[in-house]
């Protein structure tokens, strides 16, 4: 979460709760909303690394709040992140490990593993469909996230079919 927070702070200084809200508004229901504790822990680390600094802002009738802003080093880290190419997904599939290894031990049958996994993927897809239904059609970011998840799931399912053809 470090770099998304730096990116939000590059836009304008903010306190922790405002950052949480900004993440929620941007990504909508499609993204797990971070808890405020996580955000403060991350901000604390960023401060220690010299990427952000905090100023106390006095508030009447309330405790001071800390407003964070980006330092020059923070901006550099953010630019480096934006400039470098992003890794594509790799297959690091736990299911595939099960599929290859479990039958060797006699614990499970490959056909049964594949069949169960297929039905599980379809349940996940149904969940994504329901999530899409509940998502504000105007939130393009959230919609694209869900669509991305669906495309990944379709690829997983197609791969599962290949596994079934070749390994069972």
């Amino acid at each position: 979460m470090r770099l998304p927070l730096l990116a939000l702070l590059a836009k304008e200084p903010a306190h922790g709760y405002e950052l949480k809200q900004a993440l929620e508004v941007t990504f909508g229901s499609a993204y797990p909303s971070p808890n405020i504790g996580q955000i403060y822990v991350t901000l604390g680390r960023l401060e220690k690394d010299g990427f952000v600094r905090a100023v106390d802002v006095e508030q009447s009738n309330r405790p001071n709040k800390k407003v964070y802003y980006l330092t020059a080093a923070g901006r550099e880290a953010l630019e480096a992140w934006v400039d470098e190419p992003t890794e594509g997904p790799r297959v690091r599939d736990e299911f595939f490990m099960k599929l290859v290894l479990a039958p060797l031990t006699g614990i499970a049958d490959r056909m049964a593993l594949v069949n169960r996994q297929r039905r599980h993927y379809l349940s996940l897809m149904r969940d994504l469909d329901e999530l899409a239904e509940r998502t504000d059609p105007g939130n393009r970011v959230a919609r694209l996230l869900i669509e991305g998840a669906m495309l990944h799931l379709q690829a997983d399912l197609d791969w599962l079919e290949r596994c079934q053809e070749d390994l069972t």
């Binding site: 599980h120 149904r126 069972t168």
Partner: peptide, 24 residues
């Protein structure tokens, strides 16, 4: 080779379904 219902996932509380997205 398989003939079975598609199970319903445990209903998640609203607003937390996002973890599927992170997973995949």
């Amino acid at each position: 080779v398989d003939d079975a219902p598609i199970a319903r996932l445990q209903r998640r509380p609203a607003g937390t379904a996002g973890d599927i997205v992170e997973l995949h």
